[in-house]
């Protein structure tokens, strides 16, 4: 069997039909038995947006204009990260019987689960765009950055998915740990606030949060109609590349021993 990262990527590419069938199966099973099915993917962010809009225009009035848009333009991408991570954690273990019986590149499982979460996230984007129009946020060419932000965020998520799914094979504690870490990360990431609102000392520490620049790629264009700061773009790209490299390397190193643990 050929070795090396390129050979493994080629092997994965040759199985892209399997990947797409797995994604389709995952999405189908997610909405299994519900009358509205896939519509929930759109309905869920829509209803959530309605609730936030009501609460933050009538009940609470945070000193941030267009607060629902401010919040949701970072919250939806964050939900993608959190949901994909939780779902991917189980992905390899879940398909353990298959791994013992079929010669299949194990990485298709975390990647398929990341892709199906991405599809879900994509459905929340029209809702965000609609909200931006509704709240009269500036519509500018900076919106063209959104696909780039999406690609970087997906690369980051895929890296994390590979990492946690492999780690969970050896330490089933990972699945519990992941949930705790995610709820901690939620508050350490500028989602319900922005770095400018914090005291400089704390903001200075949170600058190192690897998720923050990735989320700014959505908030800056959608909320402010502005291109993200080039430094944030560079940080986002570095964060995505690092996550993918670490996740991929770790996963491939662990892969030969999966057989004994799944």
């Amino acid at each position: 069997m050929p070795a090396g990262p390129l050979a493994e990527v080629a092997r994965l590419w040759s199985r892209r039909d399997l990947l797409s069938l797995l994604v389709a199966a995952d999405l189908k099973l997610r909405y299994k038995g519900s009358a509205l099915g896939f519509v929930w993917g759109l309905l869920n962010p829509l209803l959530l947006t309605g609730i936030f809009a009501l609460v933050f225009t009538h009940l609470l009035r945070p000193p941030v204009e267009r607060f629902p848009l401010f919040l949701l333009s970072a919250l939806f991408p964050w939900t993608f990260v959190a949901q994909a991570t939780v779902r991917a954690t189980q992905s390899v273990v879940q398909h353990g019987t298959l791994l013992r019986k079929v010669a299949v590149p194990a990485s298709v499982f975390p990647l398929a689960s990341s892709l199906s979460s991405l599809a879900n996230f994509a459905l929340s984007l029209p809702v965000l765009l609609g909200l931006a129009l509704l709240l009269r946020a500036p519509v500018t060419v900076a919106w063209l950055y959104l696909p780039v932000a999406g690609a970087l965020l997906f690369a980051f998520v895929a890296g994390v998915a590979l990492l946690v799914s492999a780690a969970n094979v050896f330490f089933r504690d990972v699945q519990h740990l992941v949930e705790v870490l995610l709820s901690m990360a939620f508050y350490l990431t500028p989602i319900i606030y922005s770095l400018e609102m914090l005291p400089p000392a704390i903001a200075g520490a949170l600058v190192w949060n690897p998720i923050a620049p990735l989320l700014l790629g959505f908030r800056d264009p959608l909320y402010a109609g502005a291109w993200p700061d080039p430094r944030d773009v560079a940080a986002a790209a570095a964060s995505a590349a690092a996550a993918l490299a670490v996740g991929w390397t770790f996963f491939q190193r662990c892969r030969p021993r999966f057989f004994l643990y799944v």
Partner: peptide
Amino acid sequence: PLIEIAAGFLPDLSAIENVHLNAALLGLT
């Protein structure tokens, strides 16, 4: 490799979907 082949079936998918998925698992397009 035909090693307990039915292991690859996902119970909630239809028979035809499972045939497609398992064929893909075994390397078909």
